[in-house]
């Protein structure tokens, strides 16, 4: 049943995408022109040695330092000047330095998003921007979500809608805020009983929905060849239970975090050809998640096909 649903949902998204509208990271204001394609290869390394069990920040020597590495091909395409689509499929690998449990690795979730540029209006010394990004993702392969903290994803289909508002000044300064509501479905697990504030007799877990805020102050320099940003994001599950004392997490948990970060992107030639990017995120607050430090590196190549 779930497979049918996934296929149907995937199909629906493809149809809606092919019929009309919609482009770079799902939360920024960057759009590409019609026929432009940007292919990117990203690598991300994230690690933590403390995690929040509920709201209690703790260590666990049987995990030691937890490391999550991700390699992600990503492709963005300008369907039109106003509509861009982005697709990505990460490969994730997890392991712990302590304890005796095996990590997990595999393809995670295929994500497709469509970004629409609704408004660009000169107001004073800059342009006022409004964009939306609708995205859908679904697990690929058969990784087990109910193997936290090692599982590479929550194993549930996801549908999100994000509004992005910004003000880009003529001198290159950008102020941007994005807010997304992410509806997350169920994840199929490999047992038919689990505890979530009481007994649950089911082989499915409800993965909580999320409100995700992303804010940035950025600066474009050298003729739009260098982009630097300071970022903050807040990820909040709207429901969910806490990790119980010295117990493992599970996909039903209320996972929240706040992250500060920085983003640098450099295009060798203005808006074509090779580019490189690097980012850094530090988790500063959280609940039922690791206090992670993340660095990401990427290479992008942009070209025009029509």
């Amino acid at each position: 049943m779930e497979k049918i649903f996934r296929l149907a949902a995937l199909l629906a998204v493809w149809i809606s995408l092919s019929l009309h509208s919609f482009a770079q990271t799902p939360w920024d204001e960057v759009m590409m022109g019609k026929g432009e394609i940007c292919a990117a290869l990203m690598y991300e390394h994230s690690s933590w040695d403390q995690y929040w069990e509920g709201t209690y920040l703790r260590q666990n020597a049987n995990i030691g330092t937890f490391t999550r590495q991700m390699g992600m091909p990503m492709i963005a395409m300008g369907v039109s000047k106003k509509v861009n689509i982005i697709a990505s499929l990460p490969f994730v690998h997890t392991k712990a330095s302590g304890g005796t449990q095996a990590g997990q690795s595999g393809l995670q979730d295929l994500s497709i998003s469509a970004k629409v540029d609704w408004l660009q209006k000169q107001v004073g010394p800059g342009r006022l921007l409004f964009l939306t990004n609708a995205h859908f993702s679904t697990p690929i392969g058969n990784y087990l979500s109910d193997y936290m903290p090692f599982s590479i994803g929550v194993g549930a289909p996801e549908l999100g809608l994000r509004g992005i508002g910004g003000y880009k000044m003529d001198n290159g300064l950008v102020f941007r805020a994005a807010l997304a509501y992410i509806w997350r479905g169920q994840t199929e697990i490999e047992r038919d009983y689990y505890y979530e504030n009481g007994s649950v007799y089911s082989a499915f877990m409800n993965v909580p929905n999320v409100l995700n805020f992303h804010g940035a102050i950025g600066y474009w320099a050298f003729d739009n060849r260098l982009r630097v940003e300071a970022t903050y994001q807040n990820f909040n599950c709207l429901t969910g239970d806490d990790i119980r004392a010295y117990n493992r997490p599970q996909p039903t948990n209320k996972m929240d975090f706040g992250q500060v970060g920085a983003w640098v992107q450099y295009f060798v030639k203005a808006d074509r050809g090779l580019g490189a990017l690097a980012y850094f995120n530090q988790t500063v607050s959280g609940r039922n998640v690791g206090k992670a430090t993340t660095i990401g590196l990427g290479l992008t190549y942009q070209f025009k096909v029509y």
Binding site: M1, E2, F5, A9, L159, Q186, S202, F204, N206
Partner: peptide, 9 residues
């Protein structure tokens, strides 16, 4: 469509 496919818990 998605909601209607939710399994009971």
């Amino acid at each position: 469509i998605a909601s209607s496919c939710i399994e009971e818990t």
